[in-house]
Design a protein around this nucleic acid. Structure first.
Length: 420
RNA sequence: CGGAAUGUGGUGUAACGGCUAACAUCCCUGGUUUGGGACCAGGUGACUCCGGGUUCGAAUCCCGGCAUUCCGACCA
């Protein structure tokens, strides 16, 4: 894409009412636009990043047998009354709205209920199990306090996968499989090093749930990390009993602030029993379906990556989710110059080879272009100018590094087009 | 939901109760310049969040509302 055609602009200063690092950088770089407190619009660059994160997650969910669906955000009052989760006293994050005919609807904050009821239409026999179903879908939560930019918002996309198994054992086995998939996802997203599987409250469903916590100053949780085992315990459940369960000693733990980027649960049979999701086993006996749920928030992950992988100049996207692989910058004086023609030519070749490239063809000063490039955070910068051509081609520099080198245009093309 | 702070051109800031609300940036015109947010000249853009009140006079003081941020509570 040509940067001259991008309708978003970078800015030197962030609005005074945004204090979180992720919101400041994402707003300044033009990835997001603020609509209301805790409500953000994703701009062209932002939606690219968000979709890239979603795609990584989708691939790993498919890898563990997930089947993608899309449920509706509109929720049936009767259904939620069945599980006693409609009342505002039970669930205080509901957004509710009225129908013209007098009925009432909710905007979904999670989807266990509709997902379970939907599956009850299809699951009858032991032959129908197990099933793993997931979606990327908008959740609405009427947070009393939205905060930290895109890390805690009132509307957000969530990946939620639900597992439906014959037995408790099958369910617990799948929980482990999902856990491994999550570990892979965070690795691919560049957060592997500082993300910990963390023991947290299992709520009413089971003893523990598993949170994935990424070390982050802007996070809302405090976790106790065991470096040897690479696990952690959420402060909320930090007791002697838990330590005994996990076989770790208190003195081996270090405390850190972290942000919850994912959460996995064994749900038991609470929802299946309440909503009539059962199956007939080999001997003709009716049994409850065992369930688990597995959530991830792509936008919060985007926020955490911005917080964790950035420097004083701007964002540093991991290649796996960057909006573009290359930032091609022409420093030509004018659009008729030789180096500009070379830049155009290179841009076309890269585009024809389906390389994701952002071409800075604007008539800006070199300094302004470099500053913008650093702010945008595209992993590789390619500068083409009279100077670079005399030196032998183009100057390449990784965003995360201070070093640059000159390579020939042919070398660059081989590097980025060999797979095509 | 409790507490605190803040609301002034698109953005960041300034202005003792007193002249035409100032400066920077952004944007537009022209010129000039091109390896780390260049320079010169000119120009557009604000009922100072909304509604009341005090006063000869309010961006400024008072009351109410709304909004945003932060702290806390909450957070399948």
């Amino acid at each position: 894409m040509r940067q001259s055609q991008l309708f978003t602009k970078t800015r030197k200063e962030a609005p005074a009412d945004e204090t979180s690092k992720n919101a400041q950088l994402l707003l300044r770089a033009g990835y997001i636009h603020k609509e209301l407190a805790g409500v953000y619009t994703f701009l062209p660059l932002g939606i690219k990043v968000l979709n890239n994160i979603i795609q990584v997650i989708r691939e790993e969910m498919n890898e563990i047998g997930g089947q993608e669906v899309s449920l509706t955000a509109l929720q049936d009052k009767n259904l939620w009354e069945t599980t006693d989760r409609w009342d505002d006293k039970k669930v205080d994050v509901w957004f509710k709205t009225e129908l013209k005919n007098g009925g009432e609807l909710g905007l979904g904050f999670t989807h266990e209920e509709p997902m379970t009821r939907m599956m009850a239409q299809f699951v009858r026999s032991f032959r129908d199990l197990p099933q793993y179903v997931y979606q990327f879908q908008t959740k609405f939560r009427n947070e009393t306090r939205a905060k930290s930019g895109i890390m805690r918002t009132r509307e957000f996309i969530m990946k939620d996968l639900y597992s439906f198994c014959k037995t408790k054992e099958d369910q617990e086995k799948y929980y482990e499989i999902a856990k491994e998939a999550y570990i892979k996802i965070f690795k691919r997203l560049g957060l592997g090093e500082n993300t910990y599987y963390t023991f947290a409250s299992g709520g009413v469903f089971s003893k523990y749930s598993g949170e994935f916590q990424t070390l982050c100053e802007a996070g809302e949780d405090e976790i106790y990390i065991h470096d040897g085992k690479k696990i952690a315990v959420n402060k909320e459940v930090m007791t002697d009993e838990v330590l005994l369960d996990l076989g770790v000693k208190r003195e081996d733990l270090r405390v850190a602030k972290a942000s919850e980027v994912g959460n996995i649960f064994n749900l038991g049979t609470r929802f299946s029993d309440a909503l009539g999701l059962s199956y007939t086993d080999e001997s003709g006996e009716k049994k409850s379906v065992w369930m688990g749920s597995y959530g991830l928030g792509p936008a919060r992950i985007m926020g955490v990556i911005t917080e964790v992988l950035s420097d004083d100049k701007g964002i540093i996207w991991p290649e796996s989710i960057a909006p573009f692989s290359l930032h091609l910058i022409s420093l030509s004086k004018d659009k008729s110059g030789d180096s500009y023609e070379k830049a155009e030519e290179l841009y076309k070749k890269l585009k024809d080879s389906h390389v994701e490239v952002l071409f800075d063809d604007r008539e800006e000063s070199a300094g302004a272009k470099f500053a913008d490039s650093d702010l945008l955070g595209i992993p590789m910068r390619v500068v083409i100018s009279d100077k670079s051509l005399i030196a032998g081609g183009v100057e390449i520099k990784e965003r995360k590094s201070d070093k640059s080198e000159i390579i020939s245009i042919e070398q660059l093309l081989t590097m980025y087009t060999k797979n095509c």
